[in-house]
Simulated assay, not measured.
Amino acid sequence: MENWTNAKFCDVANLVLGVILLLSPWLFGFDTGKITVNAMITGVVIAALAIAALAAFAVWEEWLNLVVGLWALVSPWVLGFQGTNAMTVHVVIGAAVAILAVIELWMMSQIPPRLTTGR
């Protein structure tokens, strides 16, 4: 791939984080039920947004990443699984995804992406 930017590295990191969250019920032995379903759905959404961002950049993807990252961060309290190994995984991955989204949004505000193709 050509033209690798810091934003693309953030997207690759989000892809890895999404896959880890998707697989975390088996990697870390979560209880079945809402914790596993939340990890799987949230992980798939994070990974899908990362793939979409790598394929074709759009600002809305970063805003959705921020929202999904914040959901992963607060979901242990909303769904009631605080104090578990699953909570640690959700909080760490959620915080990382949200921070990466904020970094990408900040980078875009500093150097707006080109919307037209070069000659």
Rank of each mutant, 00 (worst) to 15 (best):
M1F: 13
M1W: 10
E2R: 14
W4Q: 02
T5E: 06
N6H: 04
N6S: 13
N6T: 11
N6I: 11
A7I: 14
A7G: 08
K8I: 02
K8Q: 15
F9H: 14
F9D: 00
F9V: 01
F9S: 03
C10Q: 01
C10G: 03
D11A: 15
A13D: 07
A13V: 05
A13S: 15
A13I: 14
N14G: 01
N14C: 02
L15M: 02
V16P: 06
L17E: 02
G18E: 08
G18F: 09
V19Y: 04
V19M: 10
I20P: 08
I20E: 08
S24F: 05
S24K: 10
P25D: 01
W26I: 08
W26N: 03
F28A: 10
F30C: 00
T32I: 05
T32W: 01
K34G: 09
I35N: 00
T36G: 03
T36K: 13
T36H: 06
V37Q: 11
M40G: 08
M40E: 12
M40V: 12
I41H: 09
T42L: 01
V44Y: 07
V45P: 05
V45Q: 07
A47F: 01
A47V: 01
A48M: 07
A48C: 04
L49Y: 11
L49N: 12
A50L: 12
A50C: 04
A50H: 02
A52K: 07
A53F: 06
L54K: 02
L54R: 03
L54H: 10
A55Y: 14
A55F: 04
A56E: 15
F57I: 01
F57A: 14
A58I: 03
A58D: 15
A58T: 07
V59F: 04
E61H: 13
E61D: 05
E61L: 14
E62A: 11
W63K: 14
W63N: 10
W63A: 06
L64A: 15
L64C: 13
L64H: 05
N65M: 11
L66I: 02
G69R: 09
G69H: 09
G69I: 11
W71R: 02
L73G: 11
V74E: 11
V74Y: 14
V74I: 15
V74F: 15
S75G: 00
S75T: 09
S75P: 09
P76M: 04
W77G: 07
V78I: 15
V78T: 00
G80L: 10
G80N: 13
F81W: 04
G83I: 00
N85I: 09
A86R: 05
M87K: 05
M87C: 06
M87Q: 15
T88K: 09
T88V: 12
T88G: 15
H90A: 03
G94T: 10
A95P: 06
A96R: 11
V97N: 11
V97H: 06
A98N: 09
I99G: 06
I99R: 08
I99A: 15
A101C: 10
V102K: 07
I103E: 07
E104M: 01
E104T: 15
E104S: 14
L105W: 09
W106Y: 14
M107A: 04
M107R: 15
M108D: 12
S109H: 12
S109E: 10
P112E: 02
P112A: 04
P113Q: 01
P113H: 01
P113K: 03
R114G: 07
R114L: 08
T117D: 14
T117M: 14
T117I: 11
G118F: 04
G118N: 11
R119M: 04
